[in-house]
């Protein structure tokens, strides 16, 4: 179990509508990155999301190759369109 981590993915905008969820828990392997998690989401929901996102982890901008930790909150941020 030590090699498995529990993370929370929070969904907004188009990705929220495509998954039909506002958030979802994933059990992932140690060493997984946001890039790996995006693959899991696409597979689980049978959707294609592409890579046009920024990454936030625990309310901070982060990177696609960031190694996720147990308890992290992950957000895939679509191109913003405020204003």
């Amino acid at each position: 179990m030590a090699d498995l981590l529990k993370i929370q993915v929070i969904y907004f905008a188009k990705i929220r509508e495509l998954t039909g969820l506002t958030q979802e828990t994933f059990i992932i392997k140690k060493g997984f990155t946001p890039s790996n998690v995006l693959g899991l989401i696409e597979e689980k929901h049978c959707i294609v999301l592409g890579v046009n996102f920024k990454i936030a982890i625990n309310d901070e901008f982060s990177d696609w190759d960031f190694e996720l930790r147990n308890g992290d909150n992950l957000v895939f941020i679509p191109p913003v369109t405020g204003g």
Partner: peptide, 23 residues
């Protein structure tokens, strides 16, 4: 604000369609 702040806009059109803007 328009390029950095995580806010998203969805438009609703007169024909009943709607869509998230691409940014």
């Amino acid at each position: 604000v328009k390029i950095r702040v995580p806010i998203w806009k969805k438009e609703h059109y007169i024909d009943g369609e709607s869509g998230w803007l691409k940014g």
